[in-house]
C-alpha cells in the first residue's frame, strides 16, 4: 500500500497496468487497492500540479499566521472550520510554536489578498493577530521542482 501511494503521489496518472508492472502485482490488485484507499478516504483526490507562473495569470499566494483564542470545548476546531469554508483559502494548518493557524490564501492581486486579510480574517471574533507573508517564488511544491529541468550532465551515451 505504501509503495502504491508513494508512486501515485509522484504521478497520479500512472495507469493501473504500469503500477502493476512496477509493483510486481496484478492489475486487478492495483485497481482494488486504489478503490479501497479511496473508500477509506486515504486518497482524497487527484489534481494536476500547475505552475501558474508559466501562464500569464494574475495569481498571488500568501501564508498568513494567525494567533487566535481557543474556544472552551471547541478548541481551535470552530475557527479553523469557519476559515476553511472561505473560497480564497487553499489550506489551513494548526501549528505548534509562535502562532496557531497557518492559512494559505490565494487571490488575483496583492491588494485582493491584503483586503481579504483585513476585511475577513483579522476582524474575526477570536483572531488576536495576523501576519501576512506573500509568496514571491515557488521553487518546489508538493515534492516537485518547479524550476525548469536542469540538463542531465551525463551525456547521451557511456558504456
Amino acid at each position: 500500500m505504501d509503495k502504491l501511494l508513494t508512486l501515485l503521489e509522484k504521478n497520479a496518472r500512472f495507469t493501473n497496468a504500469e503500477l502493476a508492472t512496477m509493483l510486481n502485482v496484478s492489475e486487478e490488485a492495483v485497481a482494488s487497492q486504489i478503490k479501497e484507499l479511496e473508500n477509506q478516504g486515504v486518497i482524497k483526490g487527484y489534481k494536476p500540479l500547475v505552475d501558474w507562473d508559466k501562464i500569464a495569470n494574475d495569481r498571488v499566494t500568501a501564508m498568513i499566521e494567525l494567533k487566535v483564542t481557543p474556544q472552551r470545548d471547541a478548541g481551535f476546531e470552530e475557527i479553523a472550520e469557519t476559515i476553511m469554508e472561505m473560497e480564497e483559502v487553499e489550506s489551513v494548518y494548526l501549528m505548534s510554536g509562535g502562532y496557531d493557524l497557518s492559512v494559505l490564501v490565494r487571490g488575483r492581486t496583492f491588494q485582493e489578498v491584503a483586503m481579504f486579510v483585513a476585511k475577513r480574517l483579522a476582524p474575526m471574533k477570536n483572531v488576536l493577530s495576523t501576519a501576512t507573508h506573500f509568496v514571491l517564488r515557488r521553487y518546489k511544491d508538493m515534492g516537485v521542482e518547479l524550476a525548469d529541468k536542469k540538463l542531465d550532465d551525463r551525456g547521451t551515451i557511456s558504456l
Partner: peptide
C-alpha cells in the same frame, strides 16, 4: 555513432551507463 548521439538535440537516451 556515439559522437553523432552526443551532437543531436532532444535525444531521449537509454544509453547511459551510470546512475541518474
Amino acid at each position: 555513432f556515439f559522437d553523432i548521439a552526443e551532437e543531436m538535440e532532444d535525444v531521449i537516451s537509454l544509453g547511459v551507463g551510470e546512475p541518474d
